[in-house]
Design a protein around this nucleic acid. Structure first.
Lengths: 346, 346
DNA sequence: ATCAGCATTCCGAAGCCGAGAGTGCTAACC
DNA sequence: GGTTAGCACTCTCGGCTTCGGAATGCTGAT
C-alpha cells in the first residue's frame, strides 16, 4: 500500500532477481543466494538493506522471521510490467502449435485445440472460449420436427459455429419449413442480435393480424430457438491436472477444480478481465477478487479476434509462480495465429 | 487366488460388515470394532479366527502387522455380488434428478446433465457418453459454403444429435445443395452406417460416368462429411474435483486427472467394459487393467438405450471405497429414466 | 554508502518415547 | 470342536525434545 519513492535501478534488478528465482525454485529467497547469483558483487548485507526497503514498500513478504522473502502480488505486477515482451517462442513450442492448429478453419475446433495446446506448452491450465453469440452473423437456420411435440432447431453462424437445441413445440414440418425459409431469406448475414430485435419488432407490430407464419415464428422465438445468449458460448478448459503440482492444500485444490468445472464462471471471469478493446495480452494477478477460490492464481489472456471482430478469448491460468514470459508469448502467438488462419477464409 | 471352501454364512456376514465399515470409516477395521457392531455377540477372538481365514482366502489384506484388515478387490467383488439391489433412491436424490433432467429431449443434453447429476449425487466422477455414430438414423444433412475453399457440413440424426464439421473443399453452393438434396431424399431414415456403405457402393459403381453430382458426393464422402466415426462420440466427464478427497498421493492424483481428461480413453474404457448386450448395471472393480493410472478406481455403469437401441452409456467412477448400493441405484435409475423420457418421442 | 560480524529468531528434520490398537497363539471352557 | 479369555508381541502415530541451518537486523568499521 505505501507508495515509497520510485524504485531505482538497483532495487529493480534485485526485485526481478527475487521474483525470478522464486519462480524457478519455489522457495523463499534469502540475501545470500541472491548475492551469489548477482553478477556485480554485492554483499549479502547490502542486499539485505535493499530487501528491507522493498519489504517496506510492499513488494516482499516474509513467511516468518528468518525465512527468505517471497514476492507479493505487487511484486509480480511490477515484474510483469517491466518485461520487455521481446521473447520468441522456442522452436519446439512452435512446432507443437503448428502441428495442432494447422489446417483448422472453424472457430470452435480451433478453440478446442487451443485450450489443449496452451495447457501443453505452459504446463498449466489452458482456457479458450468461443463466443457463439450475439455478434455473429447468421448463416442459416434449420428446423426439424423430431417426434411428437419436439422440434430441433439448428442455427449456423457465418463463422461456422453450430448451435442446436431441442424445443417442446407442436408445429408441423410445413410450418417449420416456412419459418426457416422466412428467416433465411430475410436475415442471412445479420448479426444474431440485430436479427432477434428486428424479429421481435415485427412480431410486435403484426401481432394483431392472424398469420400462420407469424404465429410459428413467435412460438419459435419464445422458446429460444434463435438464442444468441450466453449459453451459446462454448468453453474449453484443459490441463487442470497441472494444478496439483502446486503446494496448495487439499481443500484449496478441490475448490479450485470445482470452480474450473463451472464453465459459466469461467466465461464471466474472462469477460470481466479481458476487455475487447485492448489489443495485447493481459496479465491479471490475484484472481481471488473475482472468484475467492482462485486465490494464488493468475490469468494470462487475450481476446481472439478475426479482422477486428472478437470471436472469443484464450488464456492460461496458473499459479502466481508461473513462467510469465513464456505464457505471454505463447498466448500472444496463438492469438495472432488465430487471426491469421481464420482471416483468410472470410 | 486360492479358492478355499465356499464361504459360509458367518464368513459372509463378517466380510460384508468389514467392507461396509471400511467404506464408511476409511480405516483398517479390527476385530474389536467388528465385535462391538455385530448384533449376535461374537467375541473378538472368534472374529479374529474368521478374519484369518478370509485373509487366507484372499479377501482381506493387512497394511502391516497389527493393523486392521482392509478388503481386497476380491472382497469388493464379492460384496457387490451379494447386494440385493433392492434399494430405492432417497427422495432428495430423486428430486435432484428430476429437476435436472426434466423436460430434456435430446440425447446430447441429457448426457451432459446426466454426468453432472451423477457426480452430484454420488459425490464422485460422473461420466456420460453419447454415441453420435454408426447406428443412428439420419435425419438430415446440410452443406454450406463458408468461404474460400471451406465447407460446413452439418449432420442431424433422428435422435437429435447434431454433428458439424468444417472441410477444405472447393464446391459451389449449388453443387452442395444438389448433394444435400440427393442424400436427404435417398437416405433419410437410414442408419449412418448403412448410408455410408450404400453411398460408397454407388460411387464405386458409377464412378466411370462423368456426373457432377457424383463427383461432389465423392469429395464430400472422402473428406468425412458424413462421418459416423468415433470422433462423433460426445463425452461428458464431471466431478473430477471429488477425487481429491481420496488418500492417493499427489503423483497418483495428477495421473488420474490427466487420464480423465483424455476423452478418447474414457470412451474406450466404457466400450471395453459396458457390453451393449447386458441389461443391467455393471460394476467393474480394478480399472487399472485397462488404464494403469486408474488403480484403486471402480466403475459403475450401464448402457443407455432407447427402445432397444444403445445411444450411449453412463457411469460413475470413484474409489473402491464408494457407496456401491447408492451408485448402483442411481445409475440404474437414470438409465431407466433415459429410456422412458426419450422413448416417448420416437 | 557498503560491508563484515554477531546475536537472535525461527523452521524443520531427526530421534525418542509412550500410548493405543491389533494380532496370533495358547490354554481353558462349554 | 467351536468359542473365548489372556497375554506377549508388533507396529503405527502423535507429541516432545533436540539440534543444525538459514536468515535476519543491527552495530560499528571502512
Amino acid at each position: 500500500m505505501p507508495a515509497g519513492p520510485p524504485i531505482g535501478e538497483r532495487e529493480r534488478e534485485i526485485l526481478t532477481a527475487i521474483v525470478e528465482t522464486f519462480i524457478t525454485t519455489g522457495e523463499p529467497v534469502g540475501s545470500r543466494t541472491l548475492a551469489r547469483a548477482n553478477r556485480e558483487g554485492l554483499s549479502p548485507a547490502t542486499i539485505r538493506n535493499v530487501m528491507a526497503d522493498l519489504a517496506d514498500a510492499g513488494f516482499l513478504e516474509q513467511p516468518h522471521t528468518s525465512a527468505g522473502r517471497v514476492p507479493s502480488s505487487e511484486a509480480y505486477r511490477y515484474y510483469v510490467e517491466q518485461l520487455t515482451g521481446e521473447a520468441r517462442l522456442s522452436n519446439e513450442d512452435e512446432t507443437i502449435i503448428q502441428d495442432s492448429l494447422h489446417g483448422i478453419s472453424d472457430v470452435q475446433e480451433f478453440m478446442e485445440r487451443t485450450s489443449h495446446v496452451l495447457s501443453l506448452i505452459s504446463h498449466n491450465v489452458g482456457v479458450a472460449v468461443a463466443i457463439g453469440g450475439p455478434k455473429n452473423a447468421l448463416e442459416h437456420v434449420y428446423f426439424s420436427r423430431l417426434g411428437d411435440q419436439k422440434v430441433l432447431a439448428v442455427v449456423v453462424t457465418r463463422s461456422g459455429i453450430v448451435r442446436d437445441r431441442v424445443l417442446r413445440l407442436d408445429l408441423s414440418q410445413t410450418d417449420l419449413d416456412a419459418a426457416a425459409r422466412f428467416i433465411n431469406e430475410n436475415f442471412r448475414g445479420w448479426t444474431m442480435d440485430a436479427m432477434r430485435t428486428e424479429l421481435a419488432r415485427r412480431l410486435e407490430q403484426e401481432r394483431s393480424e392472424y398469420d400462420r407464419l407469424m404465429a410459428s415464428l413467435e412460438q419459435l422465438y419464445r422458446q429460444g430457438a434463435l438464442a444468441g445468449d450466453d449459453a451459446a458460448q462454448v468453453v474449453f478448459v484443459e490441463g487442470t491436472a497441472n494444478l496439483v503440482t502446486g503446494e496448495q492444500d487439499r481443500q484449496h485444490l478441490q475448490e479450485l477444480l470445482k470452480a474450473l468445472e463451472e464453465k459459466q464462471k469461467i466465461v464471466e471471469l474472462l469477460g470481466a478481465y479481458l476487455d475487447a478493446k485492448q489489443e495485447a495480452v493481459r496479465v491479471v494477478i490475484g484472481l481471488d477478487q473475482a472468484l475467492p477460490s482462485m486465490r494464488n492464481l493468475v490469468l494470462i489472456g487475450a481476446p481472439a479476434r478475426v479482422g477486428g471482430e472478437v470471436m472469443g478469448s484464450l488464456a492460461v491460468i496458473g499459479p502466481t509462480r508461473i513462467d510469465y514470459q513464456h505464457a505471454i508469448t505463447a498466448v500472444s502467438y496463438i492469438a495472432r495465429l488465430f487471426d491469421k488462419v481464420l482471416n483468410e477464409s472470410e
